[in-house]
């Protein structure tokens, strides 16, 4: 009986997931072809992917572990500075820059996470804000290393070397987009694997019911800390890509406005769904780009987006669709 239901169940979910998944990747891969026709440009597409990755990383914590961080700018910004340090001071290598981004952002996430692990809810959120502000403050004040207010400038992302082949992501925007997409693909693959693993399931269990989870023998605080660290890891990858995209790293990448933006992207797209944050990032980044070029009052519009999402679309775009499908 059950032996027949398991494969049947698996088949059904696979069938259901296959089409949207194919559509998402088809859209992402063909971006450089259709984007110019809708008035976009490659850097915008890359920015969508970068923030999409940051928001998906945050969402491991927010949507899948049920723990809120309003300070992920810290790991995003540290990722950016990590990449910047390598390219500016040390060596002209994109892979090493990404490695430094990951190390710096993830280490900070693990450290701060450990300091906050016993807190929950709104207090936890407040601490995340405070820690992010520490990073912002350090980057802002430590002029000699970080370039202070102006940020770290005067570096360029390096072309990739595969043996004799050189992929010039430095000068070719399309190639750089595909580089970002490749990193994005690896990261989302890892996330999907994680969420199907026992560790990932423990995160979802904590979201659903922390008390029950504890009394199943899972140490909740430690798992929240692990989730926080993993989340910081993915967000720092995004931050590293952000530095490569801009060819600079400045304190605004660490500012709490970035934290808020990453959260709204996740919520706007649907924090209960895997791809929601990417959709949210696409909508938000595009709107932001458009609005800020249209009006000096762009802050009001962005603010109204926040208010509207909270009051009228709290489940987000994909959450809304998912709800209807299930019903």
């Amino acid at each position: 009986m059950s032996e027949t239901t398991i494969p049947a169940m698996a088949d059904r979910t696979q069938q259901r997931n296959w089409l949207p998944l194919a559509a998402i990747w088809l859209v992402l891969i063909t971006v450089p072809i259709w984007l110019p026709y809708v008035g976009g440009y490659n850097a915008l597409a890359s920015r969508v992917l970068v923030f999409g990755l940051a928001a998906m990383g945050l969402n491991l914590l927010l949507g899948f572990t049920g723990t809120m961080s309003f300070g992920h700018a810290a790991y995003f910004g540290l990722g950016a500075y990590g990449a910047g340090f390598v390219l500016r001071y040390w060596i002209h290598s994109t892979p090493l820059a990404m490695l430094a981004a990951i190390l710096l952002g993830t280490a900070a996430g693990a450290l701060f996470g450990a300091l906050m692990a016993k807190r929950t809810g709104i207090y936890f959120a407040m601490l995340t804000i405070a820690f992010a502000q520490i990073c912002y403050y350090v980057a802002y004040s430590w002029n000699s290393v970080t370039g202070g207010y102006d940020g770290l400038r005067g570096f360029q992302r390096a072309p990739l070397h595969f043996g004799p082949y050189i992929v010039n992501i430095r000068d070719n925007g399309v190639l750089f987009y595909y580089f970002v997409l490749a990193v994005f693909a690896i990261c989302t693959g890892l996330m999907a694997m994680l969420l199907r693993s026992p560790l990932g399931r423990s995160f979802i269990a904590i979201r659903e019911n922390p008390r029950r989870t504890r009394f199943l023998g899972i140490p909740v605080e430690r798992h929240v800390w692990i989730s926080f660290t993993i989340s910081a890891f993915f967000t720092s990858v995004a931050g590293g890509l952000y530095a490569l995209l801009n060819n600079f790293a400045d304190p605004t990448a660490l500012f709490y406005v970035i934290s808020g933006n990453i959260v709204i992207m996740a919520v706007m797209g649907g924090m209960r769904s895997f791809w929601g944050p990417l959709i949210g990032a696409a909508v938000f980044v595009t709107l932001q780009d458009y609005i800020s070029s249209m009006t000096v009052n762009w802050m009001s519009f962005i603010g109204m987006i926040f208010v509207a999402v909270v009051l009228f679309f709290p489940r987000g775009l994909l959450g809304f669709i998912g709800r209807r499908r299930r019903a």
């Binding site: 927010l62 809810g121 959120a125 802050m299 009051l311």
Partner: peptide, 15 residues
């Protein structure tokens, strides 16, 4: 969820 009150006041701050 407390995330909503944070986002709401965050948006109000901008406005």
């Amino acid at each position: 969820d407390p995330v909503y009150s944070l986002l709401l006041t965050f948006g109000l701050a901008f406005i």
